[in-house]
Simulated assay, not measured.
Amino acid sequence: MTTPLDRLGFAQSLLVRHSAERTGPTPALADHPDAGLLLFTGETAVLRRTGEGASAILAAEAGARAPEPLPLLFLGRVGDRPVFAGALPVEAATLYAEDPGYRVLDLRSVAVEGAVPAAELGLLATAKSLLSWHARHGFCANCGSPTVIACGGFRRDCPSCRTEHFPRTDPVVIMLVTRGDHCLLGRQARFLPGVYSCLAGFLEPGETIEDAVRRETFEEAGLPVGAVHYRASQPWPFPSSLMIGCEAEALGDELILDRDELEDARWFSRADVRLMLDRRHPDGLLTPPPMAIANLLVRGFADGF
């Protein structure tokens, strides 16, 4: 078994971020007939069918069949082609869902299915995160006045008090805690039946990644942790987080679970983990799908990395 980074959802992107183009007048969709367009209707993405697959990058005219996308953001470029993203009313989804040339699919399913090329998932993550931020930050946190879009959508400005507001990304530590040939996996009540995953939690202000791993593991499982090692990261646009994948070494094996956080947690052997990854565990236990960073961490443990 391997730990393929190319299967990690949202971690690859075709986007070239042209920050220099955001400082002055930004490109406009109407001026670029060759532009690419990403469209969301609520939590779902509009995809263009391409033979047996699909693409998230639509032609500019694809937005003409619906009300004007608002907001319309300039993301950057794919090659020399400017790419924009826009939000449509939820009811506009039917305008595309009823057309055999399109698919309308929620973003998590897009990643799990591999419905679009892996390098387009990063584009979708950027678009979804930015659109979600704009939907929630129409007013100035400093004075309460309405704000306006600036820098192509990578900033909102307050005309009243001149405060500049920037999109936020919430860092989350997700850790595979190990002790010898066993690893700790847990489940929350909201998980699908039989799924066990890595522990995780939000990084707090003024806290290092390593200390966040130690704190969250102790809070959720009552387990002290020593050494912590960074492994990989994954953008997680629900609505806008960065999953920071780590491996951590437990200093003991006794578990004291916080039942408000975890329905269950237990130690699993490498053999158990391999069966879970292969969906052959006798109790029907599973790991998260390959698009999730928890799968990458668990698979690395199973492979002895």
Rank of each mutant, 00 (worst) to 15 (best):
Asp258Lys: 07
Ala62Gly: 11
Arg190Lys: 15
Gly79Ala: 10
Asp278Ile: 04
Glu219Gln: 12
Pro89Cys: 06
Ala87Ser: 14
Leu73Asn: 00
Val112Leu: 11
Gly114Ser: 03
Glu263Asp: 06
Gly201Tyr: 07
Asp258Phe: 11
Arg299Asn: 10
Glu21Ile: 08
Phe268Thr: 04
Ser132Gly: 09
Arg259Gly: 11
Lys128Glu: 13
Gly24Tyr: 12
Ala250Arg: 01
Arg187Ile: 00
Leu184His: 01
Ala87Arg: 14
His281Asn: 10
Ala127Leu: 06
Arg231Asn: 06
Ala127Arg: 07
Asn295Arg: 03
Arg81Ala: 08
Ile293Cys: 02
Ala135Glu: 11
Phe139Met: 04
Ala212Ile: 04
Ser19Cys: 06
Met243Asp: 07
Leu223Glu: 02
Asn295Phe: 00
Ser233Glu: 12
Glu43Pro: 14
Ala45Ser: 03
Ser241Arg: 10
Asp99Trp: 06
Glu247Leu: 13
Leu70Met: 09
Arg17Tyr: 02
Val273Pro: 00
His134Pro: 08
Phe10Glu: 02
Phe238Trp: 12
His165Glu: 04
Gly51Pro: 04
Pro25Thr: 14
Gly284Pro: 05
Gln12His: 13
Asp272Thr: 09
Leu296Gln: 10
Leu38Asp: 06
Thr287Lys: 05
Asp278Ala: 13
Glu220His: 00
Leu75Phe: 01
Pro117His: 11
Pro239Cys: 09
Ala62Cys: 15
Trp267Gly: 01
Pro100Phe: 09
Lys128Phe: 14
Gly36Ala: 14
Glu219Asn: 10
Arg136His: 14
Ala11Asn: 12
Asp106Met: 11
Ile293Lys: 02
Pro289Gln: 09
Pro167Gly: 12
Ala292His: 09
Ala221Glu: 04
Ala125Gly: 15
Met291Asn: 06
Arg136Glu: 15
Cys143Ser: 11
Gly144His: 07
Pro71Lys: 11
Gly252Pro: 06
Leu285His: 12
Cys183Lys: 03
Arg81Asp: 08
Cys183Ser: 02
Glu120Gly: 04
Gly222Ala: 05
Pro117Trp: 09
Ala248Asn: 10
Phe191Asp: 07
Pro71Ser: 11
Trp267Ala: 04
Ala248Cys: 14
Val172Glu: 02
Arg136Trp: 10
Ile57Pro: 02
Tyr96Gln: 09
Glu52Trp: 13
Cys143Thr: 10
Ala292Gly: 02
Thr217Ser: 09
